[in-house]
Amino acid sequence: MTLAAKSLLLIAVLGLAACNNPDRYGAGGAGGAGGAGGAGGGIDTTGLGDPNNPTSIAYFNQRVGDRVLFAVDQSTLSPEARSILSAQASWLNQNSGYAAIIEGHADEQGTREYNLALGARRAAAVQNFLISQGVAASRLRTISYGKERPLEVCSEEACYAKNRRAVTVLSAGAGV
């Protein structure tokens, strides 16, 4: 089995395991989206590939950066966010075997349904930027979790700032 095939298989397993896995919602950070110590149960992060391999999901998550952050009640992309997304776009343009779901999230300072709409706005801002950088629209899909899946649980700005995010979650396959 080739390394790529192994990766695909592991990704498929991860996909299943992700149903109840909070890491699914971008909690992986430097550990990668599959850093599934908890609910996922002993799944090896090497499923994302070697972060030194520039075509791996792990490389995308850790080196390129899989997320951008937003100001309170905003969906405007900051210069820093644009820089990360430009890198995401060029990576996606070079690695055409991956599709992505962009997850939009909000912090808890807001009503539930408004935050769903706000998360969707953030995800769409990322999607539109990636498309403007040449990524095929057919490879991108968005979803909003509103305030349902915070990454950090404290009720202070330090946590809120990390929760107001859009995370580009890769999956193998050219389309979603």
Binding site: E113, L116, A117, A120, R121, A124, Q127, N128, T142
Partner: peptide, 9 residues
């Protein structure tokens, strides 16, 4: 209900 398309609800 609300329907969101392309980020607009």
């Amino acid at each position: 209900f609300s329907l969101e398309r392309g980020g607009n609800t």
